[in-house]
């Protein structure tokens, strides 16, 4: 893809008091690619995306956007540059219809002065069109978001970010709370966002989801980079192994066997 990463962090660290949440992380995100950020709980994924989305400022290190060094002081500044983050809670209002949610905070208006009004017809039409681009048919834009499935809600949040001019789309565990089929639906939208030229950052702790859509993989572990691979540099099995710490799992199962064996010995001794 393009030579210059759209978003890059170099040697960033983040300390919360004496806790080192991130240590010396470097990452590149390219337009038209899905960069997967993997790691177990506590690996530092959340801290890194909060730095990328402007919620936190790095204690050390540099942040580049489209080649320029920048400092983001708030999520709003990130949003203004086109770095949109879709959090797990999605920031959707369940009781409100799709079209109202889609434009919430950035309502299109028409008319003048005291007659300025929310252009509902435009909003409904646009929602239908934008969702159609993601392959979803919305027949009733008046449907309350709360009555939709998790995957559909996720897709609304993604479509909203894309529509409002996101260049980089950060997705915080979009498949975490979803069933197999719904997760598949969301993965499809991730790929769709990528083919529309966005740089997608896909945070997950599921290596199978990551491998299905990712072009690059960054695996974090305890605040450090465990490895960075392009898709052709790593197999699914290797990624699973790197990510979920199969070595650790083996050690754990060994330990469990050991406990069982001792119990057996005790039982034999008693008998």
């Amino acid at each position: 893809m393009s030579a210059q990463p759209i978003l890059e962090v170099k040697n960033v660290s983040k300390l919360f008091g004496s806790v080192i949440a991130l240590s010396n992380i470097s990452a590149k995100v390219y337009a038209g690619e899905v960069t997967c950020l993997l790691g177990d709980n506590g690996a530092g994924k959340s801290t890194l995306i909060k730095i990328l989305s402007g919620v936190h400022q790095p204690t050390e290190g540099e942040y580049y956007f489209e080649g320029q060094p920048i400092t983001l002081n708030s999520p709003r500044e990130a949003l203004e540059r086109g770095i949109a983050t879709v959090y797990q809670d999605l920031s959707l209002i369940p009781l409100m219809p799709i079209w109202r949610n889609f434009f919430l905070g950035l309502e299109p208006t028409k008319g003048w002065g005291p007659f300025k009004r929310f252009d509902a017809a435009f909003a409904k039409k646009t929602v239908r069109e934008e969702m159609a681009k993601m392959g979803i048919d919305i027949r009733d834009p008046n449907q309350a978001v709360g009555t939709m499935s998790g995957g559909e809600r996720q897709s609304i949040a993604i479509a909203r970010a894309v529509y409002f001019g996101a260049k980089v789309l950060i997705l915080d565990e979009p498949t975490a709370a979803l069933g197999v089929k719904q997760a598949g639906v969301v993965l499809k939208y991730v790929v769709q966002a990528k083919t529309r030229g966005l740089g997608v950052v896909f945070i997950t702790h599921n290596p199978h989801h990551a491998y299905a859509v990712g072009d690059r993989f960054i695996v974090l572990k305890r605040g450090k980079t465990l490895g960075i691979w392009k898709k052709d540099e790593i197999s699914r099995e290797e990624l699973v192994r790197a990510m979920s710490g199969v070595d650790e799992l083996e050690a754990l199962s060994h330990e469990l066997n050991e406990i069982a064996r001792r119990k057996d010995l005790e039982n034999q001794a008693a008998a």
């Binding site: 920031s91 109202r100 919430l104 950035l106 309502e107 929310f118």
Partner: peptide, 23 residues
């Protein structure tokens, strides 16, 4: 029919989420 109306629904529906999107 107005932006304010949308904001009222959103603020009552979920004030946090509303603030996240700039309401």
């Amino acid at each position: 029919r107005t932006q304010w109306g949308n904001w009222i629904f959103a603020t009552g529906g979920d004030a946090n989420a509303a603030r996240n999107v700039g309401v």
